[in-house]
Design a protein around this nucleic acid. Structure first.
Lengths: 235, 235
DNA sequence: ACCTGAACACCGTTCAAGT
DNA sequence: ACCTGAACACCGTTCAAGT
């Protein structure tokens, strides 16, 4: 019943040869298709074919199983997706000590950038992230390190949680929009091209500096946030 | 073929009494169910019952029409949604002259806040916004005024488009996450409550200042961005 | 005990058939 | 010319029936 007791990151216990379970006649309670393999396969489908392609039928088929069997491991599609999302935050272990040596500003930049790059390598995950913000164990571990750094550097608890909340929201907001970057840029590029005959002089005057890549917007915005924070702190 | 020629904002031409069209035997080419009514009804469904509830069957039913008829006005669901999104940006006409008198910093804050509040009043629109960034006529008009203000205050074209792109992305990123605010806050609140026994001391130390409302994150972040921009500009 | 095919109530989209 | 019911190929979820 307690969702925390069922850790997403727990790897399947190594069980020797693959055929172990099927060779045994006794039912030992462990399902032949472990959660970790379901989640990994689901993420693979999302990466390769997009979030819309992740149907339980397709997933079951890839696992040589059936949809009804998936409901034995996850009570519904949303729960599967929550595990999938936290899986994304487990790519690289957070090096707490190293980050603390950087000081809050560089540490925050490093963590925000790492988080963004991590989500960047699974751009199709965006629509799934909307369903619920990441509160799985991996996401919480990242939050813990960030808060440690901020508290260490003298931020008050009230300000520290505010800073992390805003930074995390910023990263997620930009990462979510990674989704159809090419499509959006194409649409905006056309709108910019048409700005001349559309009676939009200012837009037309800057159109040559064309759609700004989302990466640039992200690092530009992140720098502004941290500069603003440093400035506000010095007062 | 040119998408711009089919303006979203064009209201149905006033045609006297409602029964006018049905009374006339001649076909004058204008469809009995005007686009504007389709879009408004679709937005109403989204507002009242969420984006998932917007199916073409339900929409057709509310309009006393059929799904196939909708395909006469929109070539697919995506096109309907694009119109729906730009409709959202047409709530209040942008007062260009007034904004220019504020100076770039306050003008940017006012526009970003207005945009956010506008999207805030249609929180269920979030999942739809992911499909494509707003490039409809209303969105472009807003962009035009913002760029005017920035250029007026001496920002270079290169920096001006960068600033607007980043600010708009920031607003959209936060607005998109307005979606399930309560649900997310509840999940985070539980994770914070559990941080004590989960071996997350820093998280536990700030937990009392509990989930930060998204509104606060937004205005905090916006202030940081503008402060950072002013600071970077003075160098 | 665990798994499965088939069912149920939905989708977006298309098309032959009506008026 | 415009509209419509019904079809097609999908969904997530559930359940009786198999082994």
């Amino acid at each position: 019943m307690n969702p925390r007791s069922d850790s997403v990151t727990t790897a399947e216990p190594t069980s020797g040869p693959d055929s172990d379970a099927s060779a045994s006649g006794r039912s030992r309670g462990r399902p032949p298709v472990p959660k970790e393999r379901i989640v990994a396969t689901a993420l693979k489908i999302v990466d390769e074919e997009g979030a819309d392609a992740l149907s339980l039928r397709v997933l079951a088929q890839r696992l040589d199983s059936s949809t009804a069997t998936l409901y034995r491991h996850f009570s519904n599609r949303a729960e599967l997706i929550n595990h999938l999302i936290d899986h994304t935050f487990g790519g690289v272990p957070v090096q707490a000590a190293e980050l603390r040596s950087l000081g809050w500003e560089d540490a925050c930049r490093a963590m925000a950038t790492w988080m963004f790059e991590n989500l960047r390598s699974h751009p199709n995950i965006a629509p799934l992230l909307l369903a619920q913000a990441p509160t799985g164990p991996n996401a919480m571990a990242l939050r813990e390190v960030a808060l440690q750094v901020l508290l260490d550097d003298g931020f008050s608890p009230r300000v520290a949680i505010r800073c992390y909340a805003t930074l995390a929201r910023f990263v997620l907001g930009f990462a979510i929009q990674l989704n159809g970057e090419e499509t959006e840029d194409a649409a905006l590029a056309e709108a910019l091209r048409n700005s001349g005959e559309d009676n939009l002089p200012a837009t037309s005057a800057v159109a040559a500096f064309g759609p700004v890549p989302l990466d640039d917007e992200f690092s530009f915005g992140l720098d502004l946030l941290l500069t603003g924070l440093a400035q506000q702190r010095s007062r």
